[in-house]
Design a protein around this nucleic acid. Structure first.
Length: 119
DNA sequence: TGTTTGACCGGTC
DNA sequence: CGACCGGCCAAAC
């Protein structure tokens, strides 16, 4: 198999960002799925850290990343004027009680959807 | 430099 | 279903 994303990427955060930005509108993925795609060597927690640092990356739709249950666990890290749920619903994602509805349908697995990142 | 914490995950009880 | 534990790695203290 080809290298994860690109060998030019040295920083784990950069790798996470590249995956997250590719999440289609109206779709969601999980921290673990991203970690898994990156080789599961870093652990899902690091993805969370990457998101924490993603504030300096406006291009990174962190709201499309939820935990394995489809729960908006990181919503408290979003600006009050633009909550995580609001951004997701604006993309057509239905959410009830911080829970993404039809999570199994909207789930976007990078290891399955991404074929080539050298675009 | 050692300990704690973290937007997590999977398994166990 | 809720609580707990070990693992994973990096940043903060």
């Amino acid at each position: 198999m080809d290298r994860k994303i690109s060998e030019k990427n040295r920083d784990f955060f950069e790798q996470v960002y590249q995956v997250v930005v590719l999440i289609p509108k109206g779709r969601v993925t999980s921290y673990g799925a991203i970690a898994n795609y990156l080789g599961a060597k870093s652990g899902a927690r690091m993805v969370g850290w990457a998101m924490n640092a993603a504030h300096s990356r406006p291009e990174v739709p962190a709201h499309r990343v939820v935990n394995r249950s489809g729960l908006l666990t990181g919503k408290h890290h979003f600006p009050a004027e633009r909550p995580m749920q609001e951004q997701l619903e604006a993309e057509g994602v239905r959410i009830v009680e911080d829970q993404v509805q039809e999570f199994d349908k909207l789930f976007w697995d990078p290891s399955k959807e991404i074929e080539d990142l050298s675009h």
